[in-house]
Amino acid sequence: MVATRPVPQKRDDIPGWFFGLDRAAFSHLLSAQTAAGITGDVLELGSYLGRSAVLLGDHLQPGERLTVCDLFDSEAGDAENAAEMTMSYRRTLTRSAFESNYLAFHSELPEIVQAPTSVLADGRIPADSCRFVHVDASHLYEHVSGDILVARSALAEDGLVALDDYRSEHTPGVSAAVWEAVFTGGLRPVLLTPMKFYGTWGDAAAARRTLLARDWRAEGYTVDEDTIAGHHVLRLNYQVKTPAQIQRSTPRRLALDLLPPVATRATRRVLRTLRERRAVPPTPGA
């Protein structure tokens, strides 16, 4: 008998690695596009259980379409991708779980392509039709390079792409594909966060101005600017209050971020229980 997954009551109940800072960046950029009268479809390559797709759906305007492409519980098309799926996602990733999570917050499902993201290279996503593309599928260099090409074709002139895991130690293939796109493929960096690279093949300066219109520091973030081979790029991160907090929280947070969702939730429950026990005063005489 297959256990029924509980329906999420809030977005944080959906397992995944889509964290607060990037949720804020996605929302700000998508809202700014809408406020500026920019329209277009939204595309997500790699959706897992729907945590980011739900947010993308929040920002759809009338006539716009969200398309998500993921293997879900299908078989991978090559041995390397199959090994990655088996190691990280196979036990939890199903299309039915994604659909249930998405429908907990939206009345209609997005367009779903249950297949390797490489199938989108066939032109089924019209050229220049999207204003925002989120790439978070395979971590293999060849696949990510192909996904970036799909994003470039799909995006309208000043559309934005968000690329996940561009700097994680365990995803060097993503890093290689992202920076290759910058140095040889015309991708202009806009924003870097601990997890995602944001860029455009259009007006990067305008996108940075859009980001700087928000007082991120007042919301608990740091804002810095770097130059990479002549490209200006913003960096957003979480503010850290004290050195003691860095020593206590950073390794633990990083470790939790890198765990699969099931292990992350179990670890957080244990940590919460330990904190609660420390908060209870000892019984006299115990």
Rank of each mutant, 00 (worst) to 15 (best):
residue 225 E to R: 13
residue 134 H to A: 08
residue 97 A to V: 05
residue 120 L to G: 01
residue 260 P to G: 09
residue 137 A to T: 00
residue 215 D to C: 10
residue 191 L to M: 04
residue 51 R to A: 06
residue 282 P to G: 14
residue 25 A to F: 02
residue 235 R to I: 03
residue 139 H to N: 14
residue 204 A to I: 07
residue 118 S to F: 06
residue 65 R to V: 14
residue 210 T to A: 09
residue 82 A to T: 05
residue 286 A to S: 11
residue 7 V to S: 12
residue 100 S to D: 14
residue 117 T to I: 04
residue 152 R to K: 15
residue 242 T to F: 11
residue 5 R to V: 12
residue 8 P to M: 12
residue 130 C to Y: 04
residue 8 P to R: 06
residue 170 H to P: 05
residue 255 A to N: 10
residue 108 E to S: 04
residue 118 S to H: 13
residue 98 F to P: 03
residue 282 P to V: 02
residue 207 A to P: 00
residue 184 T to V: 08
residue 183 F to K: 13
residue 134 H to L: 10
residue 193 T to Q: 01
residue 130 C to S: 07
residue 51 R to V: 03
residue 190 V to R: 01
residue 255 A to L: 07
residue 198 Y to G: 00
residue 74 S to W: 02
residue 31 S to T: 08
residue 246 I to A: 15
residue 223 V to T: 10
residue 272 R to M: 12
residue 163 L to M: 01
residue 84 E to Q: 10
residue 133 V to N: 02
residue 65 R to Y: 10
residue 227 T to G: 06
residue 201 W to Q: 01
residue 198 Y to N: 01
residue 89 Y to T: 04
residue 36 A to M: 11
residue 228 I to A: 02
residue 188 R to N: 14
residue 187 L to I: 09
residue 116 P to R: 00
residue 242 T to P: 08
residue 191 L to V: 00
residue 244 A to D: 15
residue 4 T to K: 13
residue 71 L to K: 03
residue 96 S to F: 04
residue 119 V to G: 11
residue 264 T to V: 10
residue 154 A to C: 14
residue 159 G to E: 02
residue 125 I to C: 14
residue 29 L to H: 00
residue 253 R to Y: 10
residue 65 R to P: 05
residue 234 L to C: 04
residue 79 A to R: 06
residue 99 E to V: 05
residue 74 S to Y: 02
residue 223 V to Q: 07
residue 84 E to L: 04
residue 51 R to W: 03
residue 259 L to K: 13
residue 256 L to I: 05
residue 283 T to I: 15
residue 13 D to I: 09
residue 113 V to Q: 02
residue 181 A to N: 10
residue 16 G to P: 13
residue 276 E to D: 09
residue 281 P to L: 09
residue 49 L to W: 08
residue 79 A to Y: 09
residue 239 Q to Y: 11
residue 41 D to G: 01
residue 33 Q to A: 08
residue 87 M to W: 06
residue 271 L to E: 15
residue 102 Y to I: 15
residue 222 T to N: 01
residue 142 E to K: 11
residue 283 T to Y: 12
residue 117 T to W: 00
residue 171 T to V: 14
residue 121 A to E: 07
residue 279 A to V: 06
residue 41 D to H: 07
residue 118 S to W: 05
residue 4 T to F: 08
residue 257 D to W: 12
residue 28 H to L: 03
residue 175 S to F: 09
residue 263 A to P: 04
residue 16 G to W: 05
residue 13 D to P: 13
residue 142 E to C: 10
residue 149 L to K: 14
residue 259 L to R: 13
residue 69 C to E: 06
residue 29 L to C: 01
residue 84 E to S: 10
residue 32 A to I: 00
residue 217 R to F: 07
residue 257 D to T: 04
residue 104 A to P: 02
residue 124 R to Q: 14
residue 249 S to K: 12
residue 259 L to D: 07
